[in-house]
């Protein structure tokens, strides 16, 4: 696909607006996929790889961190090889955000870093965070101004606020990137990543959340779930 053909694709995508706070995305995933068929197979595969590295909701409970790190490294290498420098920077920024958040969560939980484990994060922030583990914001507050507010919300166990801050920061970052690219592959990827934010935000549903949480709990408890249910039944004296 030469650069001119991105003009058709980008013009066929509706504007995502100024904010991700919408009830319904302006285009459905089905319609978006149809438009993305204008991309070459190579670019479709690359876009799919990028999405799978950044969106972890498709991962099942058996996923392995090392596989995720390996696939992220492969995607970054592909982007370097194909000279998509802005795109590489964008993906790395998102991965660093996850690593910093993971570091903050580890530390809040009181965990020490397991140096035996080769990697615990993705991106290039891992070594820096290990060096500044005792520093309140891993000495990153000048580069990532949102760390202080995320740390504060984590301490209050306000996970919704953490999510909101990260959405805001990511949205603003992607907006900035999209203003530099109009009709190229980077613009397409930026659009899809922004669409994913809009879609995720609009799909947030408290009832579905509880249902999903219960299914995760059921999976985590496994056979012990039956045991715990048995104890409850005994205490009520209903069945025995």
């Amino acid at each position: 696909m030469n650069s001119d053909q991105y003009i058709t694709l980008m013009s066929a995508l509706p504007s995502l607006g100024k904010t991700y706070h919408v009830d319904i995305p302006p285009i459905s995933r089905f319609q978006l996929e149809k438009r993305l068929n204008l991309l070459t197979e190579e670019h479709q595969a690359l876009l799919s790889d990028i999405e799978s590295v950044l969106h972890w909701d498709h991962l099942n409970s058996h996923y392995d961190d090392s596989e995720l790190i390996q696939s992220a490294t492969l995607v970054l290498e592909q982007l370097t090889h194909k000279h998509y420098d802005t795109l590489r920077e964008m993906i790395l920024w998102r991965l660093n955000l996850r690593t910093i958040l993971a570091g903050l969560r580890y530390r809040q939980r009181g965990d020490e870093l397991n140096h035996q484990q080769s990697h615990w994060g993705v991106g290039d922030m891992e070594a820096h965070i290990e060096t500044y583990w005792q520093h309140p914001y891993f000495n990153l507050q000048s580069r990532f101004h949102w760390i202080a507010s995320v740390q504060e919300s984590l301490q209050k166990n306000d996970t919704m606020q953490v999510e909101r801050i990260l959405f805001d920061v990511t949205w603003q970052y992607l907006q900035r990137c999209s203003s530099q690219h109009y009709f190229d592959f980077t613009a397409v990827v930026t659009y899809v990543l922004r669409w994913n934010l809009v879609s995720r935000w609009s799909s947030y549903d408290a009832d579905k959340g509880v249902e999903h949480f219960q299914s995760l709990m059921a999976f985590a408890l496994g056979e012990y779930q039956q045991l715990s249910m048995g104890i409850v039944v005994d205490q009520n004296g209903d069945s025995k």
Binding site: D4, I7, S11, L13
Partner: peptide
């Protein structure tokens, strides 16, 4: 004209 036309075709889809 081809670039502008491509954009017009894309816009017509939306």
């Amino acid at each position: 004209c081809s670039r502008a036309g491509m954009s017009a075709c894309g816009a017509m889809l939306d």
